[in-house]
Design a protein around this nucleic acid. Sequence first.
DNA 1: TCTATATGTAAAGTTTGTTTTACTTTTGAT
DNA 2: ATCAAAAGTAAAACAAACTTTACATATAGA
Lengths: 66, 66
Amino acid sequence: MKNNIKVQRAIHDMTQADLAEKIGVSRQTINAMEKNKYVPSTVLSLKIAKLFKIPLEDIFFLEDED
Amino acid sequence: MKNNIKVQRAIHDMTQADLAEKIGVSRQTINAMEKNKYVPSTVLSLKIAKLFKIPLEDIFFLEDED
DNA sequence: TCTATATGTAAAGTTTGTTTTACTTTTGAT
DNA sequence: ATCAAAAGTAAAACAAACTTTACATATAGA
């Protein structure tokens, strides 16, 4: 799975720390997500989509190997 | 978080085992998800939304306590 | 009623997400 | 060139997802 969180942050002019605080996780969690170190929970991805006011599928994308 | 996987299964006339097999998890995982025993990963929820051909937010819902 | 299929549940174990702390590197502004 | 903020990274510890096995309950049809 891939994501474009970094782009969404740029659009909204937020740092990783900003986003982390808004959705209630650590900054490292945001960083690791952006670097595709792991797959976040559905609660987390729903919160991010809600914050950015766009469909979850516009931020997170399945890949062939998923 | 809540979900209406059971309803979607009914619409598509699928058993828990059917769904489990289609998205590549165990039947107990589907059962536990339906009974809100845990929060699935974003890959799993994306696969379910894709299978049912509806937006993820039409299946999984944030609650106030999330 | 008997049987097959679907669902619910539980415990143990493995894997993976997430936090915390802490340090390094990059970037941009002055 | 310097400084501060932002981003990258890493290890240890803990929490949660997910699997496997196994059994119990429900439901519907023959």
